[in-house]
Design a protein around this nucleic acid. Sequence first.
DNA 1: GGGGTTCGTCACAAGTCTGTCACACGCCGG
DNA 2: CCGGCGTGTGACAGACTTGTGACGAACCCC
Lengths: 234, 234
Amino acid sequence: MARATILIVEDDKAIRLGVRDVLQMGGYAVREAGTGTSGLDIACAGGIDLVLLDILMPEMNGLEMLEALRRARPSLPVIILSALGEGPDRVRGLRLGADDYVVKPFGADELLARVEAVLRRSAERPVARSSLTIAQRTIDLERRQITHADGTRCMLSEREAEVLHYLASCAGRPVSRDELLQRIWGIDPRGVRSRTVDMTIARLREHLRDDPNDPAVIRTIRGRGYMIDAEGES
Amino acid sequence: MARATILIVEDDKAIRLGVRDVLQMGGYAVREAGTGTSGLDIACAGGIDLVLLDILMPEMNGLEMLEALRRARPSLPVIILSALGEGPDRVRGLRLGADDYVVKPFGADELLARVEAVLRRSAERPVARSSLTIAQRTIDLERRQITHADGTRCMLSEREAEVLHYLASCAGRPVSRDELLQRIWGIDPRGVRSRTVDMTIARLREHLRDDPNDPAVIRTIRGRGYMIDAEGES
DNA sequence: GGGGTTCGTCACAAGTCTGTCACACGCCGG
DNA sequence: CCGGCGTGTGACAGACTTGTGACGAACCCC
């Protein structure tokens, strides 16, 4: 990434400008939003590599925005800017899948160090491709369409496609139900014990003609979650 | 991971005990070290999922320990515990590859949230292929999977994988049942005389197709425990 | 050989995890 | 309003994991 673009979502203009200066000094391109709704629009439009998100904002709560953002762009990294004393929200934020949070007031060095760390981690994440072939099934994630070996096709629903997309982007490691709930459903998975993820996987497997007892595409790793094998493995 | 084990490296006993209580309350297993050198030993020995590291310590500076630890176990997550006003150290710590830091004084909620977040990220990190080959069997401990010489594969259960992992990390020396009970089961083995460990080994051997009467992988050292040969030995 | 100890394995029970069913709910296009 | 579709939920059965006592065999020391 030559020059990462960072979106600041923060209602306090003074802080926003200060943060902007720090980031620009650090060599990043910066975009700004004063409200959660406008921030969400900009982030969804694309071209953003990282979001700095204030939790306490009028109009749309930062956490709500985070939830919405996670649904729209599950892999876009987010750092929460939080004031001291927002304990419960902080915890919820991290549980919702924020990549980090910085407590106000923060120094320029600290902010840059965290931004750098998060960007580095996100760069390590393998890019999800828009189409892939697994076990004789060609999967077009853009069109949400599966083509089987015999040439027949079927469509995936929105949720199914999201889950498959995420699993594929994590190919080679097991992905837990909690992680899926966080990243795709935008749900805080504490204590949630529902069959939601399992059912989506079951429907996905049905479309993939994948036998759960002898899976060719989505393997179950008991106690850990689901996994798609990385390329080059059988 | 059923229950993560966290190592606290902190010279101030009061803080150490406080942190320990918080972590145990949060459901984690805890080990402690009062100096950097002893902490390094414990961390390198294995069985640790996360290190909480105080920066200011006598004998061995926390940053030095971090550097040494990074060389020995590059992927072991570390959270730095730092006092206010150590700005430059903080930044250096993050640059040295600490995964996070918490500023003293910190609340229980904040500590647990950070611990949880770092553990989550470390679980989501694409794992470097950490496989070992023993007697024609390729063992992928991350995925709990054994590949035999004939290409067939089988999965290990969580416990089996933990035990195999531990034995492999101690390759070359016998590991007693008590040590296994302590390190893996988290049980004080005094007076315990159960077949728990033996059964896990038996099941493991079955998956490994290892004949107890003529073992190729896990040898029984009567009176001492079990042992995996070090590489290069037959 | 005798007695005690250690080890491997069996059967079993309790607990946990998964896959699936049936159903309810909301959404959308007739 | 109806019916189809996608989706989430509770219930439930079956599979899997794991610890335990029982038991016999192997082993060790004398």
